[in-house]
Design a protein around this nucleic acid. Sequence first.
DNA 1: GTCTATACTATGATAGAC
DNA 2: GTCTATCATAGTATAGAC
Lengths: 186, 186
Amino acid sequence: MTTKRDAIIDSACHLIEVQGYHATGINQILEESGAPKGSLYYYFPEGKEGLASEAIERSSRLIESRIREVIAHGVDPAEGIRSFFVLLSERIEASDFRHGGPLTSVAVEAASTNERLRSACRNAYARWQEAFADRLREQYDDERAASLAALIVSALEGAIILSRSERNVAPLLAAGRELERLIRSG
Amino acid sequence: MTTKRDAIIDSACHLIEVQGYHATGINQILEESGAPKGSLYYYFPEGKEGLASEAIERSSRLIESRIREVIAHGVDPAEGIRSFFVLLSERIEASDFRHGGPLTSVAVEAASTNERLRSACRNAYARWQEAFADRLREQYDDERAASLAALIVSALEGAIILSRSERNVAPLLAAGRELERLIRSG
DNA sequence: GTCTATACTATGATAGAC
DNA sequence: GTCTATCATAGTATAGAC
């Protein structure tokens, strides 16, 4: 029932992450998902915007759970956060730098144009920050934890962009290393 | 002679920064620049890609000089870098969050598609990192300065994205504050 | 009632005619 | 040096098949 709809969202998640929002056409999403062209407006009456909105929601939830999972494993927040950056760099390298951040392109391309998508990105970033802040509160007060979490998410997004541009994970690893040091030293 | 060509590049810089790469059409660039419709291929035989490439070059040089100028004024590297983030936040807020990073959209949208533009972005980011690293070498050895510079540029790009998504400069200010602390504490 | 195929309109980049 | 034509493809919408 909802399985074909799901497949469309999955394809949208994937293609938007790899190619960007505007570069990803609706027919390409339909094609990759195996759904025939034109059935989009049955599943997504609001068109590309509605689909992208759901794709952002799904992608960002997945990342949020990964953040929580990985940083929980570190003996302390600093190590956990470093691990997350390392894991991310492995994933991006393994895809030959095709993968990036699942939100980034939408946040960049739709930030000043589309209120709904901007809002979806804002919420997603807020959840990620909260995931980091939750662990950081072991060591810091609320305000400082929030401030550090904001830096972490910013560095995350930026380092992915730099690493893809360089086709080299060095920026991601440098960010992880420096953030670990910052968090450890207080 | 070259003044109309220049105007086209300026418009491209502006529109790409505000709207993104794919969202910016050639005719819109021509229109804003006042150049006659269709005259793009006279000035830029390589089309949109060639124009974008020059726009990236120009924008990134401008930012590089701003980086060098602002961080030179701080009494120490930490303060200079913090100032740069504050200045950036003021500029973005003043534009009602329309402005962003001039490279970001191209780096995100063309990273996995267009080799030439990817390369142009890579070079630009390298120059920015070098600008920060130059000042950081007052205080750190080469390797550490490079590592910190990578984090700074990553945080810069990411914090702009977050701030635009939130329509709030808090992420930029948090990043500046935390980076200042990191650099100061060693 | 659920889903699919085809058609429509607008606009993109581009290139050749003036 | 400039403008108009071309061609592809985007997103959208609807009418009909199952």
